[in-house]
Write a protein that binds this DNA or RNA. Structure first.
Length: 858
RNA sequence: GGGGAUAUGGCGGAAUUGGUAGACGCGCCAGACUCAAAAUCUGGUGCCUUCGGGCGUUCCGGUUCGACUCCGGAUAUCCCUACCA
């Protein structure tokens, strides 16, 4: 047996074996305990990059490990295939979004297959498949019926040159990415999911999710942002002629500061604004400016507050003679609270900035405890007691809040409210490459959901994306249809769904990917929830929150929460490169010359930017193909798992890949050089009469097995890898002479082969096969740790003097303090440091440490 | 501006969760094999040192017999988000 380790041969051999034998096929089996492992499905951007390798290797280790543990494992894969890049590619390369997407899928599928992932490919889905979005349209109708979907006016980023709506990422420094002109805000009627109706449930269920990272739960909690406050109705007095508004409702979380109120501010998009403009045309230009200006990064960082003074005045609810001026201000959000506030400059920094700019009164109403804060530059937001506030004087902030709310409710001019930062989920996109929304607008003005039997509404295959505007609206025929009930003329909804909708339920579809309904209840009840979800931390909020919302809205018992356990892996980062024309450049296209960087393909000079997470749009991606070609996917997988803890961000570097290659080599040579031993039939051996070195080997083996098992359970793959290194290092130094030693070595090697399988599956299968086994290693159970080999017989006790390590001794387990003291009497290093000093006390932790605390004689 | 995280040798990182800091890997140094190189194998490798020891987990401070670990403050980097009253 002197064949060389040849990953290419081995890996293709086992990949086809798994595929031909349907090794990873999964189906419902009520007798077996299920385990649903899912990694976030990829966007088919072209090729996989190192971030994908990290994500899918990690999930695959868990999948293979749980299979070995006897679970009925489901490990599917699919494609998050709708989205903007396909349209951009279509324009740039004159290829249809569909063709581009499916070609990418095909490339990436074979790349993933070359990694040897234990995936059930029969469950593969792509969200752009007609079959998938057909079901999604049904879900849309279901939600529509439940009143979870509604339409309202909402702002979009508008590029006036391209005549098109821009996504946030297409707005760069307040300008359109293609046109370079300043982006405007435009009102459009759009569809929304009523996610806020589930805000409280989404918040409270977080408490019952012990297997989610605390940081993710915290982020979601802050994002939902439940806050207790109150609404106050202010009367409006005006000299305007045609003015119907009598009241203005504001929201505050600080009713305790009501006596510090010196102005009222409303959003430029507040309904009251129209009323004002009708009477006060002088300010209409200014207001329009505020309305159309998307605040760019610059003005945000400068925190420039702009207010337009109106001729309206608002009486203070508790001070009859006090009138507050009303402003239209750019820093008031229409989407939060009521779109109107009262300003209390003394205790809110934004209000302070605003008051100073427009010379408004500043009234201090909270006196900090202890100190007398008279600094008027900075708003005071800390604790304190109320002053200058009539009936609130002397109260604490909390007391005052309650008093004010009671008073308002008594006078029927306000009430306690719970407000959420979370806003409803806008799902309309003015795009072609997405799921069509199954809605018709009838000529008589009625909005009609398309009946289920008429689904799917298919995307037209011929579409002109080079024209500006909404591609589906531009299509010559697609939108024209008739109402299925009345026969009246109708126009289809030409917006498509946000791609976050596609990914909010794909994990349900995997349970029954071919079902003619969105999902099969039986299958869902068996497979859901996902036992382990693995994905990037960047999805900590939106994707996960939307998926949770879907699961709750569907109201199926098995999926109250879709993801039982969540693991968020860290980002794989890489430096970014830009050439002198400002275009992103692939790292592989960058070359070093004369201390400068150049783009190899065209000679342009290149500058290096900061490390950022790998993404196709910034081109800072590393294609794993090269590494897999040179070292094999087992080495690539092993390398990805070693070194870095999975939850931590990494800056990609391939220094170290050589060590992984060496590891695979070492496994190979160790197994092949012991192949005769491994092929021998097992004999009933004198298993209890091991030599000392054989015992030591078995101890190391079982300790390693125990450690590796624990590391996998705890997602510390890098530690597991280190423990396997220790084991192989120990094994390769072991020289068996007696038969019992050979027997021990055989046991050890077999355990080694079994426990490396989740990480380097092809190599492990080949080794297993070389041993003369005819079954696949994947059907072999995970070995059990034999406790008898790992019991500690001795304890190592560290001796410290004043917390500094001075010696260490071996004792029997459970030795008493007196025994330890007796033992260290003659240790020079200890007695020297103690000398004649007075011993103040001794701290003894059995089996661990003895610390002698002495008086310092200085 | 807000929210969330991270920081340990030349580098990636480990540390039984408050008890020997630096496991394991990379790199580097030395040796073996070789005509030679690559590969492989063996050994060494935190820093300083007057060879007694001293200093060391981003920085400053605190709690403790004892702190990488807990608390307070600062700095840097990454992720998410955009003025949330």
């Amino acid at each position: 047996m002197s064949e060389k380790y040849n990953p290419r041969t081995i890996e293709t051999k086992w990949q086809s074996y798994w595929s031909e034998n349907k090794t990873f096929h999964s189906e419902l089996d009520p007798k077996k305990k299920k385990y649903y492992i899912l990694e976030m499905f990829p966007y088919p951007s072209g090729k996989i990059h190192m971030g994908h390798v990290r994500n899918y290797t990690l999930g695959d280790v868990i999948a293979r490990y749980k299979r070995a543990k006897g679970y009925n494992v489901m490990h599917p894969m699919g494609w998050d295939a709708f989205g903007l890049p396909a349209e951009n590619a279509a324009i740039e390369n004159n290829i249809s979004p569909s063709k581009w997407t499916y070609e990418n899928i095909s490339t990436m599928r074979s790349q993933l297959k070359s990694m040897g992932l234990s995936i059930d490919w029969e469950r593969e889905i792509a969200t752009c498949d007609k079959e998938y979005y057909h079901q999604q349209q049904k879900l849309f109708l279901m939600f529509y019926k439940k009143n979870l979907i509604y339409k309202k006016e909402s702002m979009v980023n508008w590029d006036p040159v391209e005549n098109t709506v821009l996504a946030n990422e297409q707005v760069i420094d307040g300008r359109g990415w293609r046109s370079g002109v300043e982006v405007e805000q435009k009102k459009l009627s759009q569809w929304f999911f009523n996610i806020t109706s589930h805000a409280n449930e989404l918040l409270e269920c977080l408490e019952e999710m012990p297997d989610w990272p605390e940081k993710v739960k915290l982020m979601q909690k802050n994002w939902i942002g439940r806050s207790l406050g109150c609404e106050i109705n202010f009367d409006i007095h005006s000299n305007y002629k045609n003015f119907n508004t009598k009241q203005l409702k504001i929201f505050t979380t600080r009713p305790d500061t009501i006596f510090g109120a010196t102005f009222i501010a409303i959003s430029p998009f507040h309904p009251l604004v129209e009323d004002i403009l009708e009477n006060d045309q002088d300010i209409s230009n200014e207001v329009k400016k505020l309305q159309s200006q998307k605040l760019n990064e610059e003005s945000i960082s400068k925190n420039e507050k702009i207010g337009i003074s109106t001729r309206l005045e608002v009486p203070h609810p508790f001070l009859k003679n006090k009138k507050l001026p009303l402003f239209i201000a750019n820093f008031i959000l229409m989407d939060y609270g009521t779109g109107a506030i009262y300003g209390c400059p003394a205790h809110d920094q934004r209000d302070m900035d605003f008051a100073k700019k427009y010379n408004l009164e500043i009234i201090q109403v909270i006196k900090p405890d202890g100190i007398n804060n008279t600094d008027v530059d900075e708003a005071y937001t800390g604790e304190g007691s109320i002053i200058n506030s009539s009936f609130l004087n002397g109260q604490t902030i909390e007391e005052a809040k309650e008093t004010v709310i009671n008073e308002l409710e008594k006078k029927k001019i306000g009430k306690k409210t719970i407000n959420y930062r979370l806003r409803d989920w806008g799902i309309s996109r003015q795009r072609y490459w997405g799921c069509p929304i199954p809605i018709l607008y009838r000529e008589d003005g009625e909005i009609i959901p398309v009946p289920e039997k008429d689904l799917p509404i298919e995307l037209p295959s011929e579409v002109d994306l080079s024209k500006s505007g909404n591609p589906l609206a531009n299509h010559p025929t697609w939108k024209y249809t008739t109402c299925p009930e009345t026969g009246m003329k109708a126009i289809r909804e030409t917006d498509t769904l946000d791609t976050f909708v596609d990914s909010a339920w794909y994990f349900l579809r995997f349970c029954s990917p071919k079902c003619e309904n969105p999902f099969d209840k039986n299958e869902i009840n068996y497979w859901m929830p996902v036992d382990q979800y693995v994905g990037g931390i960047e999805h900590a909020i939106l994707h996960l929150l939307y998926s949770r919302f879907f699961s709750k809205a569907l109201n199926i018992e098995a999926i109250k929460e879709p993801f039982k356990s969540l693991f968020t892996q860290g980002m794989v980062c890489h430096a970014t490169f830009k050439n002198e024309e400002g275009a992103w450049v692939f790292p592989s296209d960058v070359e070093h010359r004369d201390g400068k960087l150049y783009q190899a393909s065209n000679g342009l000079e290149v500058t290096m930017g900061p490390n950022e997470s790998m993404s196709k749009s910034k081109k800072n991606v590393i294609d794993p193909e090269e590494i897999i070609k040179n070292y094999g996917s087992d080495s690539a997988r092993w390398f990805m798992l070693s070194d870095s803890p999975p939850e931590r961000d990494i800056n990609w570097s391939d220094s170290g890949i050589h060590g992984s290659w060496r590891f695979c080599q070492k496994i190979w040579t160790t197994i092949t050089s012991n192949i005769h031993l491994l092929r021998e039939n097992d004999t009933e051996n004198d298993t209890n009469e091991y030599s000392t070195s054989a015992k030591l080997l078995l101890q190391k083996t079982h300790q390693s097995l125990d450690a590796v098992t624990n590391s996998i359970e705890k997602f510390q793959m890098n530690v597991g890898v280190a423990k396997i290194y220790e084991l192989i290092n120990h094994i390769s130094k072991f020289q068996p002479t007696q038969s019992s030693e050979k027997h021990a070595l055989k046991i050890s090697l077999k355990i080694l082969i079994r426990i490396i399988e989740p990480m380097v599956p092809h190599l492990a299968e080949e080794c297993w096969n070389l041993c003369g086994n005819t079954n696949s290693l994947t059907s072999e159970p995970w070995p059990k740790t034999d406790k008898k080999f790992i019991v500690r017989e001795k304890a190592t006790i560290v001796i410290q003097v004043n917390g500094k390590r001075r010696a260490e001794i071996e004792t029997n387990l459970g030795a008493t303090e007196a025994e330890v003291i007796e033992k260290i009497k003659n240790i020079k290093n200890v007695s020297e440091h103690v000398e004649d000093s007075k011993i103040i006390k001794r701290i003894y932790v059995p089996n661990k440490i003895l610390n002698i605390v002495i008086e310092k004689n200085e």
